[in-house]
Design a protein around this nucleic acid. Sequence first.
RNA 1: GGAGGUGUGGCCGAGUGGACAAUGGCAGCAGACUGUAAAUCUGCCGGGCUUCGCCCUACGGAGGUUCGAAUCCUCCCGCCUCCA
Length: 381
Amino acid sequence: AWRVEPPPTVQTRPYAKQITSMPLTFEILATDGEARLGRLTTPHGVVETPAFMPVGTLGAVKGVTPQGLEGAGASIMLSNLYHLALRPGIDAVERLGGLHAFTGWRRPILTDSGGFQVWSLGGLRKVDADGVTFRSHLDGSALRFTPEDVVRFQERMGVDVAMVLDECTAWPVERPAAAASWERTLEWARRARSAWMGGTGGLFGIVQGSVYRDLREQAARELAALDFDGYAIGGVAVGEAKTERRAVVEWTAPALPADRPRYLMGVGYPEDIVHAVAQGVDLFDCVLPARNARHGVLFTRQGTLKIKNSGFKDDPRPLDEECACDACARTSRAFLHHLFRCGELTAPVLATLHNVRYYLDFMADLRQSIGLGASGFFRSP
RNA sequence: GGAGGUGUGGCCGAGUGGACAAUGGCAGCAGACUGUAAAUCUGCCGGGCUUCGCCCUACGGAGGUUCGAAUCCUCCCGCCUCCA
């Protein structure tokens, strides 16, 4: 017989007391050419670099549980202030104990500032000297971001790495406009730096300057003078050619302070990451593994698989024959093909788990290569 | 038996005299995706060719009207609904 239990006491989540002020620390453990093997220590744990940050815009990588993301080997996740400010709102996140408590993700979190949305939501925002006003892509309501707001919001959410508000410069852009855009971003960076209370984690500045070498180098110097905890290269992968993007990384990375982590925002394909690591970049994020997974494109050691294509109908092999992820452990290409064909929810779930694992394994391999030191892998001519 | 309705490309379904090889959707075949307005978007999707165009075959079947028919008429066939 069932016993009638008293109604459960509604238990408030233990308030995740803000971890006391703890600046980021970054150590370089080994180098290979310009490539660095590093360790970024944050309030919520250590990030071995070079590292890839899966993108969980709304607080979760689409289709992946926090446990799944941990299991895949992610040491840090990226989320987005703009999206969280719209829903559920910064107040709600704070009330629920901060972003970690709210999402259940216990490892480090970096939040983007909304600067990318200045570009990607081009038709829905107005930029002025003081900040950005977005028209919500959900209901059209106005949302005002100043550099100070953005710092405060991220501090209130208790993230490990906050990003300054920047203006992700569109491409193509004439030099004068790119320079003017950088001036604005630099001024915002100064304001953000002043507003930063150092409550949790650290604050990263963002270099812009489009595809102009002197602008990028100048931007790196000016930003370095503000003494951020880390430096990001932004404004890439917005339509420019691959060669231009690589040139930007080659100019900018070496111009950034050697003792701070360097972060190439939004990049990219594995080969792009290798190139950037060889230039001394330590952190990456990109929606590709997750988005492509949802679209049926798998990254594997056997090449890119468009699993929805008819050729996989009868392929009994695992997604990636050398992958140890939970999807590859039991899922054949034929089965995933079938799941995609049927629109089964499990399809993108399995595919995302695999792609994210692929990226993270790939990063681990890069770290190992650098750690081997004398390999010279990254000292390519 | 009576009355009414309906039959369109793999499927569903618009079209009711010329602008129709025929809107859409699905299925199918491919492609794109880089700090996520993206489980999204784009192209192809009767056959053939010398493929910004041309030819052939097509809107249940056969005939007819018309310069011209998926569209109008006649008969036939199938299916559906209601009445007996």
